[in-house]
Design a binder for these strands. Structure first.
Length: 479
RNA sequence: GCUCCCAUCGUCUAGCCCGGUCUAGGACAUCGCCUUUUCACGGCGGUAACAGGGGUUCGAAUCCCCUUGGGAGUACCA
């Protein structure tokens, strides 16, 4: 059996972190099994669905490297891939269900339904739909009224029996026999409803494994009923636990950055994003934390999901991003940095300079965007801020002497950059001529040259710093 | 309310299915130490968890039940 999986987003907003994670799991499972990954757009909610969101979501998936084999933009033999374009199909099967008396027309108004709901539970009244159209004696009337052109919803007759699901994540799930009542599968406006479309599509698209969020676990009983009524093979299900925020509530907009495009705009590495997302609720068989998709293609499986919700944690994502950054080749990293805004200076430098700079700074960077920041702060900053630790160093009696000496030396330099040898010579002079050593020596020189009390090794940092910047700094600090 | 699902360090998790090897392992964060003629970088180490209560068993993080807590669903949303 060839695996066919799908990701079925609603185009009602940007691609959400949680959606990206389920998409990723589906994609990885397809890749790991040599299967097919289908993208289906669930746009039956006409009011909320917008076609621009469809494009945006597909873009974000592409950015993450989650590539579908079939979808609205990649037609295959199972199309169309937008539910809004599958009207006729849904109606065909719905009518079949009505004809077999597995579903019936329902003419109840919203008010009537509302009244029923309010009454539910009182005096032993059922919590489920108990409208008269459920009754066999109204069947013929219903058919006739619809034939005459009247509008009606189609309601599915929920069998009164227990259903059991063997979920790949949750294990055996038992749905008691009266868990759900008759439910609408086609609205009176003619549009079919999610739980129904989903089954028709999964059946017709020959989906073998449904990997989706746990929020669908309770829905599944309805879908099981429809599979049965349609005489379709039930796929395997894997209900992945949800992502939660710091308050342990389902991850949503109020938790901050929950849309993929936000991370994309901040130039997070897509590989790192996938790595981190994969780790939330799934574990590597060798307990590794850092991996890429190629590793996953070999060993991703449905057996390593955790059953409980996972908290989305920016700290660890930051670390994962940093690790992927360090794994990249210097060349690749340089080209990414050059795409960042405010990197004119960086771009103008020699290849040797860029290499040395990236090698030095990547120890301090977690994100690509950190590089311009670090260059500005560590290399190009002409006006050191008088922080308390810096004041402290400046107050030592040795520091003004060092500053004075360094200042005059810097001003003698003719070239654009100081060499490591020149820097060493200055250090030697301070040490010998002024008899300053140890902490006062190093901190004094560091303060004089960088205006900072900490940072990368001076012998690497100073040769990367333009001499004219050095001149301005010593001038500032000498005031 | 009803129904379903879940419960290991602050966080992500391994272990659980197939009880003993678990004085519960790893990672992030945090703290400390070492190194560096300095601070960072790096290296090393520490703190920190089986929700509670009952069973079953010679033995339970692992199996069963209850309680508590959390989450989800209960629509002519998806």
């Amino acid at each position: 059996m060839t695996v066919r999986v799908r990701f079925a987003p609603s185009p009602t907003g940007y691609l959400h972190i949680g959606g990206a994670r389920t998409a990723l799991y589906n994609y990885l499972f397809a890749k790991a099994t040599g299967g097919t990954f289908v993208l289906r757009i669930e746009d039956t909610d006409l009011e909320r669905s917008k076609s621009e969101y469809e494009t945006l979501q597909i873009d974000d998936l592409k950015w993450l490297g989650i590539i579908h084999d079939e979808g609205p933009d990649k037609p295959g033999k199972y199309g169309p891939y937008r539910q809004s374009e599958r009207q006729d199909i849904y109606m065909k099967y719905a009518l079949e269900l009505v004809n077999k008396d597995l579903a019936y027309y329902d003419f109840c108004t919203d008010e009537e339904l509302e009244a029923m709901r309010e009454n539910a539970g009182k005096d032993g009244a059922s919590a489920h739909y108990e409208g008269k159209w459920k009754l066999p004696e109204f069947k013929a009337e219903g058919m006739a009224r619809v034939a005459a052109g009247e509008k009606a919803a189609i309601r599915f007759r929920a069998p009164l029996k227990e259903y059991v699901l063997n979920d790949r994540v949750k294990g055996q799930v038992t749905y008691p026999k009266d868990m759900v009542g008759d439910f609408v599968i086609v609205r009176s406006n003619g549009l079919p409803v999610y739980n129904y479309c989903c089954v028709v599509d999964d059946m017709l698209m020959e989906i073998t494994h449904v990997i989706r969020g746990e929020d669908h676990l309770n829905n599944t009983v309805r879908q099981l009923m429809i599979y049965e009524a349609l005489n379709a093979k039930v796929p395997e299900f894997a209900h992945v636990s949800l992502l939660i925020g710091h308050d342990r509530q389902k991850l949503s907009k109020r938790h901050g950055a929950t849309s993929v495009n936000l991370y994309r705009n901040e130039h997070y590495l897509p590989e790192a994003m996938c790595n981190y997302l994969c780790l939330l609720g799934w574990s590597h068989p060798e307990e590794r934390d850092i991996f890429d998709k190629n590793d996953l293609f070999k060993l991703f499986s449905l057996d390593r999901f955790s059953a409980h919700a996972a908290m989305y944690d920016l700290e660890k994502l930051k670390w994962v991003n940093g690790e992927h950054l360090k794994k990249m080749s210097t060349t690749d990293l340089i080209s990414l940095i050059e795409k960042e805004p405010e990197t004119e200076f960086f771009r103008q430098q020699s290849a040797e300079w860029k290499n040395a700079c990236v090698e030095l700074l990547k120890k301090y960077a977690s994100f690509v965007t950190d590089f311009p920041k670090l260059v500005n702060e560590l290399i190009l900053n002409e006006n050191p801020e008088m922080t308390d630790p810096l004041k402290e160093i400046m107050s030592w009696e040795t520091t003004p002497k060092i500053l004075n000496f360094i200042s005059s030396e810097v001003h003698k330099v003719q070239s654009d950059f100081v060499t490591e040898a020149e820097l060493n010579a200055w250090m030697e002079s301070v040490k010998k001529d002024m008899a300053i050593k140890g902490k006062p020596l190093f901190m004094g020189v560091r303060a004089a040259l960088t205006g900072h009390d900490h940072g990368p090794d001076l012998k690497f940092l100073i040769p990367l710093t333009p001499v004219n910047v050095l001149k301005k700094r010593v001038q500032q600090l000498s005031k």
